[in-house]
Design a binder for these strands. Structure first.
Lengths: 135, 135
DNA sequence: ACTAAAAATGCAACAGTGTTGCAAGTAAGT
DNA sequence: ACTTACTTGCAACACTGTTGCATTTTTAGT
């Protein structure tokens, strides 16, 4: 689904910055930091960008994939709603390029994690991303 | 080992704020946020507190246990050095009291994680801490 | 205990993140 | 096209984290 369709599907108004943010995240291999988003979307006020990221997060269209030293990285959600998030993946911070990537985890690991009596379980790690060290 | 001994062991100078930070973290059940530390250590300049947290982290005496919305939580390390960190535990952010606790993870989960080709693997989650919901 | 060198501290200043209130502008249904 | 509710841009603010520099403290050697 394209960004406009996604917004309609989530009952959100179709505005320029929302489409721009969703497009930027859709086109990116990994997650994007707030700083990079702001750079790419200079035509919008930074307050608006913050509020857009909040709105899209609250409704389950995007999620904060990673946070380190006050830098937040955002990625598009797949299979999330405003009711439940489905983030059974690992967020990898690349030691080479600094990018953040979402990595699928094994079924076994998912089962292990599912046994824990907690919610919003999040795994992050550092290493080489697929761009910097192709398989 | 007490805080002064720990500092000597790591070849760090024994200063008031370092002892105060280590004592505060040692006496706390869970991790403490920068804001709380600053509150408890008002007699010191906040720049000094930041630099102290950096120094203690760099040398493996403490670690940043959790970070969310720009809030950093610090905890004492056990069995870490400036060479290698041993953080095979989960950082639980309590949904009730807001505190952050370090939780031991199962051997099976440790093995699963050890198989991943990444470093500095970190798991965080939300739920009820042991104080808010005793076992 | 004294001294000198090295390290740590406090202060001022700064850049960045994230938030709020409010007036003006825009989207969407009728 | 009109109306209402939502969204945006702007100004202002609080907090986090960092740097440079003068001053103070720690430590090791005498």
């Amino acid at each position: 689904m394209n960004s406009e369709g996604t917004l309609r599907h989530f009952n959100l108004r179709k505005t320029k910055i929302r489409i721009a943010v969703l497009d930027a995240l859709a086109q990116s291999v990994g997650a994007l930091s707030y700083a990079v988003l702001q750079e790419r979307l200079i035509e919008f006020d930074r307050t608006t960008l913050y509020r857009t990221l909040l709105t899209l997060s609250d409704h389950g269209l995007i999620h904060k994939a990673y946070e380190e030293n006050g830098e937040s990285y955002y990625a598009r959600c797949f299979g999330c709603s405003d009711q439940a998030h489905n983030h059974e993946h690992l967020h990898l911070k690349c030691s080479s390029c600094g990018g953040v990537e979402c990595i699928e985890i094994s079924e076994q690991l998912k089962r292990n994690l599912a046994q824990l009596p907690f919610q919003e379980i999040n795994i992050s790690a550092k290493g080489s991303c697929s761009t910097c060290e192709p398989v």
